[in-house]
Computed example of a mutant assay.
Amino acid sequence: MKLKICGMKYPENILEVGALLPDYMGFIFWEKSARYFNGTIPELIKTIKKVGVFVNQNQEEILEKVTKYNLQAVQLHGNESVEFLSELKKQLPKKIEIIKVFSADQDFDFEIIKPFESVCDFFMFDTKGKLPGGNGTTFDWTILKKYKSEKPFFLSGGIGINELKAIEEISKTNLPIYAVDINSKFEIEPGLKNKNLFSNFKRKFDVANF
């Protein structure tokens, strides 16, 4: 299982966290976010994939950020349509991964994701809340029992050290969980991650070998 840390903002902190080798590192390009990124990404170890996070933004802006920051993945956190993803997929280099996010709660209808299977590489399930992401709360993972797709997905939403046991349990199922996405539970302030807290989590995550 891969590990993604999102909402990075400050160059020195990016290097500190990058030295701990997460698989993915996310940068939020949505201006309304407290973690909005418009700086310079320092050079990272090449195994770390840089992810651009977007919310209902146009293709031109997404493509511009992919080129400017040499992104390896784009994460779409808004109400982007199947048609939008299909066209974006044509415009992006084939190596760029597309992650489509869905906000989940008890009433989530997994049927709505089926048309997206052919236009993205991964799904992500996050907690439904006031913001598109970074709400700091988990959703009831038992609803994932209704997930029938073979498309691998990222598990997100208020995940911290206290959720490691639950991650271990859900990893024993047949669900195609590709990665865990963490953010707000590791912050000193929006965009600034606690390196020691993340290091502790990653050590336990790696030992668990989900």
Score class of each variant (00 low, 15 high):
Ala104Lys: 00
Ala104Glu: 01
Ala104Trp: 00
Ala104Asp: 00
Ala104Tyr: 04
Asp105Gln: 11
Asp105Cys: 12
Gln106Asn: 15
Gln106Val: 07
Gln106Glu: 15
Asp107Met: 14
Asp107His: 12
Phe108Met: 02
Phe108His: 09
Phe108Ala: 06
Phe108Cys: 07
Phe108Tyr: 06
Phe108Asp: 04
Asp109Pro: 07
Asp109Lys: 09
Asp109Tyr: 11
Asp109Ser: 09
Phe110Gly: 03
Phe110Arg: 01
Phe110Lys: 02
Phe110Tyr: 05
Phe110Trp: 01
Phe110Asp: 03
Glu111Ile: 10
Ile112Leu: 14
Ile112Ser: 13
Ile112Trp: 00
Ile112Cys: 11
Ile113Gly: 01
Ile113Val: 12
Ile113Asn: 02
Lys114Asn: 13
Lys114His: 13
Phe116Ser: 12
Phe116Ala: 09
Phe116Asn: 07
Glu117Ser: 08
Glu117Tyr: 03
Glu117Gln: 06
Glu117Leu: 10
Ser118Asp: 13
Ser118Cys: 08
Val119Phe: 04
Val119Cys: 13
Cys120Tyr: 01
Cys120Val: 04
Cys120Trp: 00
Cys120Arg: 00
Cys120Ile: 00
Asp121Met: 11
Phe122Tyr: 15
Phe122Val: 06
Phe123Cys: 02
Phe123Asn: 02
Phe123Ala: 06
Phe123Thr: 01
Phe123Trp: 09
Met124Ala: 14
Phe125Ser: 13
Phe125Val: 04
Phe125Cys: 07
Phe125Lys: 05
Phe125Thr: 03
Asp126Val: 03
Thr127Pro: 15
Thr127Ala: 14
Thr127Ile: 01
Lys128Gln: 14
Lys128Phe: 13
Lys128Ser: 08
Lys128Tyr: 12
Lys128Leu: 15
Gly129Ile: 08
Lys130Val: 14
Lys130Ser: 11
Lys130Glu: 15
Lys130Trp: 08
Lys130His: 14
Leu131Val: 07
Leu131Phe: 07
Leu131Trp: 03
Leu131Gln: 06
Leu131Ala: 08
Leu131Pro: 01
Pro132Met: 03
Pro132His: 04
Pro132Cys: 08
Pro132Val: 03
Gly133Cys: 12
Gly133Asn: 02
Gly133Thr: 12
Gly133Asp: 03
Gly133Ser: 15
Gly133Leu: 12
Gly134Tyr: 00
Gly134Met: 04
Gly134Arg: 09
Gly134Glu: 05
Gly134Val: 11
Asn135Pro: 14
Asn135Gly: 00
Asn135Lys: 05
Asn135Met: 05
Asn135Thr: 09
Asn135Trp: 04
Gly136Arg: 03
Gly136Thr: 05
Gly136Lys: 01
Gly136Asn: 10
Gly136Phe: 06
Thr137His: 08
Thr138Trp: 07
Thr138Val: 13
Thr138Ala: 10
Thr138Met: 08
Thr138Ile: 09
Phe139Ser: 00
Phe139Ala: 02
Asp140Gly: 09
Asp140Cys: 04
Asp140Ser: 01
Asp140Pro: 12
Asp140Val: 10
Asp140Gln: 11
Trp141Thr: 06
Thr142Ile: 10
Thr142Pro: 01
Thr142Glu: 09
Thr142Val: 13
Thr142Arg: 14
Ile143Asn: 11
Ile143Glu: 13
Leu144Val: 11
Lys145Leu: 05
Lys145Ser: 11
Lys145Glu: 13
